[in-house]
């Protein structure tokens, strides 16, 4: 029976070597550093400074009437409850929105790679004596480390163009988005039989969720806000945006994001274990 200390040593060795394996792939470094900068460059090139009205869903209080931008004031709205409406700079909003989207997409993709591309050799490691959960924990350590680095990088590169009200909350939004989508990427990697189907799922999910529906401009006019609020990217995006433009503290963003991540991680552990465990331990 291995001690906790021995298990921790094994996991740390695996994590260190998995990180090396990942970072030595040139395309990884390219993705991590070039893609976010490219996204931001496109925003800066195509978006100007102008005020836009948005609705931040996590600031909407129970009983509030959601204000739709451009629809005029609702006579029934007595203004007793916060309806989530805020006026923000469009360029700044785009930087935070696409920054969150970039971190989510890239971490999902990297997590998928961590699990899917090395399945055979991971199975060989399990046959040799590692436990499937030890390998997955090692991969989660790699993932979280990269999430923190990427989030710090994204926060740094938008800083010259946007002074957030609360930098730490914006970075936390990036981190939570990376963690949630990273865990989803682990799950997709564990479940997908073929690489192409996994990439397709990742591209579809991230584009629809954090690339489109989580845009707060879109939220106000949506007839299915509950659906948007139920998607994995909602709370991280809300934390980042409210942190950039308001002093308000959005409800439940951290706990709900972590709940999403935990559910995805548990499912990934189950699927990963099924895929790579030996038929019979030696």
């Amino acid at each position: 029976m291995r001690t906790l200390r021995e298990r921790a040593r094994r996991v740390s060795i695996a994590a260190r070597l998995f990180l090396r394996d990942l970072l030595r792939r040139r395309v990884t470094l390219l993705l991590l550093f070039v893609v976010p900068a490219l996204f931001d460059a496109v925003v800066l090139a195509t978006t100007g400074h102008r005020d836009v009205e948005v609705t931040l869903g996590t600031l909407v209080e129970d009983g509030a009437v959601i204000h739709v931008a451009g629809a005029g004031d609702d006579p029934l709205d007595l203004g007793l409850f916060d309806n989530g409406a805020r006026t923000v700079d469009q360029r700044g909003l785009s930087l935070v929105f696409l920054g969150t989207a970039a971190v989510c997409f890239l971490m999902c993709f990297l997590a998928f790679n961590l699990v899917h591309k090395r399945r055979d050799v991971d199975a060989r490691l399990v046959l040799a004596g590692f436990r499937a959960h030890e390998l997955l924990v090692a991969k989660v350590i790699v993932l979280v480390s990269l999430v923190v680095v990427m989030s710090a990088y994204e926060s740094a590169i938008i800083r010259p163009y946007l002074e957030p009200r609360h930098t730490l909350r914006v970075a936390s939004g990036f981190i939570l988005g990376g963690v949630v989508y990273g865990c989803l990427g682990l799950l997709v990697g564990a479940v997908s039989r073929h690489e192409l189907e996994g990439i397709f799922v990742i591209v579809l999910l991230t584009n629809i969720d954090v690339g489109w529906l989580q845009n707060p401009i879109y939220y106000a006019t949506s007839e299915r806000r509950a659906l948007i609020e139920g998607l994995p990217g909602h709370y991280p995006m809300q934390l980042a945006i409210t942190g950039a433009f308001t002093d308000d503290v959005p409800r439940g963003t951290i706990s709900r994001s972590l709940a999403y991540a935990a559910a995805a991680l548990l499912a990934a552990l189950f699927a990963f274990g099924l895929r790579i465990r030996p038929a019979r331990r030696a």
Partner: peptide, 16 residues
Amino acid sequence: YPQLTPDEHLELFACA
């Protein structure tokens, strides 16, 4: 693992 060296492979499997 394509991006690990023989030394690193042997370290990882020795751990396993």
